[in-house]
Nucleic acid binder design. Structure first.
Lengths: 146, 146
DNA sequence: ATGCAAATGCGAACCATTCGCATCAGAGGA
DNA sequence: TCCTCTGATGCGAATGGTTCGCATTTGCAT
């Protein structure tokens, strides 16, 4: 985990003012092993006795997103319509989503490097990146089904 | 393209009544080369002089989704918050999304079969499927950037 | 310390989607 | 073919996540 001062530095480098809300939100997202919805972040801030309005949470998340300090997931977890955010660790990540309990696990290895290059040649696209979500049932949920 | 009677049969097989709205919506989605938002479907129905209310479009899409006759994309195209639907051709599809013009191309080949199997063993998950979206710039948009 | 632009709080507005309820229309049986 | 009954539809209101307007506050450069 990064130290708080690193978050402050990252904010400044991005041209954003460093405020307690922004550093707190970066801390929360960094320490979460799950992507979080805006409201979850808001509630966590409340637990930490950091008073903040929900619209500020949305605005902070939006500016962090602009600066690529966080990323927004494009998948719809558990069928709700909420957006989920996560700390941008700058490493290439993919997700393993459990269809039973809806837990999300990040997986490190990416099997797509070669494929992207082949696709660039074949389709004449310039490939910038990709998102890969894999769906299945985790060990615990496989148990429950029996 | 399937004939309309096939759509009627598919509806019946799924236990849904065959109505002109449902067959029309299946036709529209089948003939579209792009996933469509509910409102786009609604407007297209209007163009075809098929009177329908927007809530019916939503309800039809939902029941078609239940029966797996259409699928719902999990990606957020062009940053809007709308859901996109497409005809379920039952073949494995991935998407190449142009970051410039936001056009979406389906690509057929899937490079992930082996990877899924390896992941099952490694993580003890039962893998049911995956979604893969690849982002880049199409040939036309590469031109514009110059 | 001072001033200005950026950040925040609060509530209202927005917009895609869903719901309630009255009406209508397939699909099967008489 | 006609009846009936359940499921489908229309309409408008409600919902819920997200965004906006504006007055106030707060970083941070000077």
């Amino acid at each position: 985990m990064q130290k708080r001062t690193d978050h402050e530095a990252a904010l400044r480098r991005s041209g954003l003012k460093s405020t307690k809300h922004r550093t707190a939100i970066l801390d929360i997202l960094e320490q979460s092993d799950q992507p979080m919805a805006a409201e979850q972040v808001y509630l966590e801030l409340g637990d930490q006795k950091i008073g903040v309005s929900l619209s500020t949470v949305y605005r902070v998340l939006e500016s962090l997103l602009d600066k690529n300090l966080v990323t927004k997931l494009s998948m719809s977890i558990s069928g709700d319509n909420r957006a989920y955010f996560e700390y941008n660790r700058k490493s290439h990540r993919h997700y393993l989503v459990c269809l039973g309990c809806k837990k999300i696990k990040a997986i490190e290895h990416c099997p797509l490097k070669n494929y992207e290059e082949a696709l660039e040649r074949e389709m004449n696209y310039t490939i910038e990146g990709h998102k890969l979500d894999i769906y299945g049932y985790c060990p615990a949920c496989q148990e429950h089904e029996k």
